[in-house]
Write a protein that binds this DNA or RNA. Structure first.
Lengths: 107, 107
DNA sequence: CGGGATCCGAGGAGATACTG
DNA sequence: CAGTATCTCCTCGGATCCCG
């Protein structure tokens, strides 16, 4: 499904981090908390393959690579930030719901 | 992360299918294309655990179970349908981008 | 700097069969 | 009807090391 890609683990943070303009690899690595080099690379490749990102390589020393959103991906931005905002607003409520569920079921 | 749950493979379709009111297990199974009994059960449990769904069992014969969204989950609905709408609008563009990427890289 | 290669374990996910 | 149980295969994702 197309949504599998959009909603994959790291595929939400990257478009948000890249929304304000071309972003470099290391910037993304710092901006997205907890992502590993490997998953950043893999996710970038997938997003590029699906036409969400454009990858630009500058033949300089040291190497420099910029990632920017395609217009298509830019349309997603509102929904994505909506999702993230929701998650932050309800983070604690969800934690409580989990604790309540677990204490009601496990013992 | 909280978003992992929201964005997990089947966790998008269920809230959308359950948005219009209490929905029964079999209704969900029919509404969500391609989901297996097992994944439906597992995903329902997780959503219930995270406080997105309320599960109501009616002690009748045959058994009857209704799933409805909590207010918290209802807030998500707009973002979710936004995501789905976007995915449908760009389905073909994404398929083309993949084909182009693959033919440029693989050979 | 921006990756690729490899190894490995944990969880995701289908198929199938059984049940209160 | 609404699930469990089990078995199995597969993908995700972290850790580590290497490279132009």
């Amino acid at each position: 499904m197309v949504l599998d890609r959009v909603a994959a683990k790291w595929s939400i943070g990257i478009p948000i981090a890249a929304a304000h303009g071309p972003v470099r690899f290391t910037e993304l690595e710092r901006a997205i908390n907890g992502i590993s080099r490997r998953m950043l690379t893999l996710t970038l490749r997938r997003l590029e393959r699906d036409g969400h990102l454009v990858r630009t390589v500058y033949p300089t020393v040291p190497p420099k690579v910029g990632y920017s959103l395609t217009p298509m991906a830019r349309e997603l931005h509102a929904s994505l930030t909506g999702l993230v905002g929701w998650a932050e607003r309800h983070r604690s409520a969800i934690a409580e719901a989990r604790a309540a569920y677990d204490s009601a079921v496990e013992p």
